[in-house]
Amino acid sequence: MRLGRVPRKVRLHLPDMLALTGDPLTPPGTETVGTINVALADPADARAFAADVNTRTPGVFAGRAIRPGSNGTFVVLERFHLAIAIVTIVAATVFLLALSIMLVDERRGTVGVLRLIGLPSRRILLQVLLEGLLIAGAGAAFGLALAFVSEGLINRFFQWRYDTALVFVAVTSRVAALCVAIAVPLGAAAIVTASWALLRRGALRLARR
C-alpha cells in the first residue's frame, strides 16, 4: 500500500536526533531505535547470523538485508534498461543486415567485374570490411552527435511534460564508449556478412545484370 507514497526523509546523526526529540524524563541510554544495521565480515553468513540473533534475543527480529547490487530499485531498473537495450540492439542488427544486403546488392555488378578481372574474394572482402568500418565509424560518430543534441531536447521536453526534475537521458562517456564499441563492429560485421553472401555467387552471374 506504500507504493504510491512520495517519501520525504530527513537524515540526522542519532545524538542530534535524540537532542531534538528526546524526552528529558527518559534516562540516557534507554532510548529505543527502530533498526540496527550490521555489517558482517562475510556477507554469506547473513542468514545464519540472523537465525542466531533471533534465537538468542527474543523481542528482536533479525533479517537478511537486501544485498546492494542484487534487488535494489535502481539495480532492477538498470537490468530493465539493459533488457530493453538488448532488444533494441537485436532490432537494429536485423535492420542493419537488411540494409547492408540492399546496399551490397546495388554494387553486385561492380563486384562481379572485379571478380572477373581476377581479384580474389578475400581481397574484395577485405576492401568491403575497411569500407564497412569507415561507414560504421562515421555512423557511430553521427549517432553520438545526435544523442548529445537530443539529450538536452528530450530532457527538457519530458521535464516540462511531467513537471519533474528527473533526468531522462544522460549520455555519459561510458555509455558513449559502449555504443561505439557495439555499433562499429556490428556495422562492419553486417556489411561483411552481406558481402560474403554475395561473393558466394559466381562472378559471371554477378557481372550480368
Binding site: 507504493l3 504510491g4 507514497r5
Partner: peptide, 17 residues
C-alpha cells in the same frame, strides 16, 4: 492518488521509449 506518486516513472519511460 497512486498515479500521482511513484508510478509515473513507468509512464514516462514508456512514453520516451
Amino acid at each position: 492518488l497512486v498515479q500521482q506518486g511513484g508510478f509515473t516513472y513507468f509512464r514516462q519511460i514508456s512514453t520516451v521509449l
